[in-house]
Nucleic acid binder design. Sequence first.
DNA 1: GCCGTTTTCGGCCCGACTGTTTTCAGTCG
Length: 571
Amino acid sequence: MINLQVAKIFYQIAEYYTMDDVAFKPQAYERAARLIEGLEDDLADIYKDGGTKALMKIPGVGQGLAEKIEEYIKIGKIKEYEKLKKACPVDLEHLTAVQGLGPKSIKMLYQKLKIRTLADLEKAARAGKLTALPRFGPKVQENILRGIQYVKGGQGRMLLGYALPLARKFEERLNNLPDVERAVAAGSIRRMKETIGDIDILAIAKRPAKVMDYFCSMTEVDRVLSKGQTRSSVRLHSGLDADLRVLSQESFGAGLQYFTGNKDHNVALRAIAQGKKYKLNEYGLWRGKQMAAGRTEEEVYKKLGVQFMPPEMRENTGELDLAAKNKLPKIVNYDEVLGDLQMHSEWSDGANTILEMAEAAKKLGHQYIAITDHAGRLYIAGGLKEKELLKQMAEIEKADKKVSGIRILKGAEVDIDKEGKLHIEDKVLAKLDIVLGAIHDNFKMSKEAMTKRICRAMQNQHMDIWVHPTGRLIGRREGYEVDWDEVFAQAVKTNTAIEINAYPERLDLSWQNVKRAIAAGVKISIGTDAHATNHLSYLELGTAVARRGWAEKKDVLNCLSFEELLKFLKR
DNA sequence: GCCGTTTTCGGCCCGACTGTTTTCAGTCG
């Protein structure tokens, strides 16, 4: 997969053009880089199938950038980039990561002090050499030194599963202040993106200064980065940044829209506004000096002739076109998901008993769960062999009778071997209510072999769901590659569902692939993969992925009633 | 360099905050 490498080069070209005050190219390169980053298909594959014409179908990629991608595929580099880099040979990737250091400063640092790397920069700053430069005072120098430490610490984005509870805590505290009328986390948290760069909170407040004081002195705050009347920014001990912005009641909807993003969605929405002779900013929708809307998000979208949509859909992947035609899908609601179809107990590598899992799920309002301990091989997480599995089935039946108000399905997460065979005998699988197929080894097969392996597994009539489909671990391990068109077609043909694994570092299928799976007619299942009772709440994260992939209620297995679900499983 | 309900040419988002200035450039989102 070359996408991330190409995106990185495009980001850097954007920085170089900014250094030289080239107009408009930086935004074009940056936008293309962002979109390529989020692409599920390999650029090399797209090119192989349809040449530069196919590349130009990617939004933000025109003739010029398509040719640059072609160049990268053919000769492994982009000459334009090499030329820019030669003129200013600096470690842009790490230098730009330093807070407060942008392309203009980096260029000057190179020209005046020959600074190329973080190490060069640190040495110069420690020697006090930066203060001699125009616009560089002692404070800038100090901030740069701190920024370097931060970059060296390798703090990146935080998983949604960890950032969300934190953001909710901040929301709740602020909402409890007498001066705060309303506080809401916006940004990528509100869109439920799988990783979070920072926490963005918006508030309506009577005395902003007091609220800012409170925000900047919370126990989680490591350092105040900036503090003003309408906006403050802090760095938390966890390494994450958090922003608080205070807006007026009249502007709150426009602000919420603006700070929820994403950026490309907003750019597209502002273009729609311009087309209708409006101006849209974070304070409202304006015609001249007259405010046309701003109090609520709904009002802003409506005035622009665009259907309102949940934040999870706002990624500029076609939602605005559909909304303008009043044709948005009605995506699944969080409360329409009735149960959890993957979890582990102490029978394999889970921490709790079957009964404890059931009681905890019941408390969350679930109508049913599936106990799906590892089965197949001993060496994976205490996997059960046939005999133990039969014993566990009896145990689950007992538990199901014992608890009221929730049903428990007998399931197992079964290894799929190299050839695509399930590791448990068919006659035992036949006794289970629900069979999950999973890949736990041989990740490094070729795309063709992996596709064949999975398609073969789906042919097993007992396998109901293919779980954590790509095996990715966000930020740690890239998922393996498969031919999605082929796999989706096989899933439809064999009536096999594909899982959205809701575990914070998995969220696998990705929302991009959920979108494609659904378009192909594949049924989606959501499973938390809980290994303890406190993991059961991850169901919300999995549902968020379904929503970001535009899944409707009818697409999601867990939206079926218990009786309907049994019918599907016995198909 | 991209893009098209105003366009195949001529547009392209803009306000807050900081640190350095003594009126503003650079950065960020």
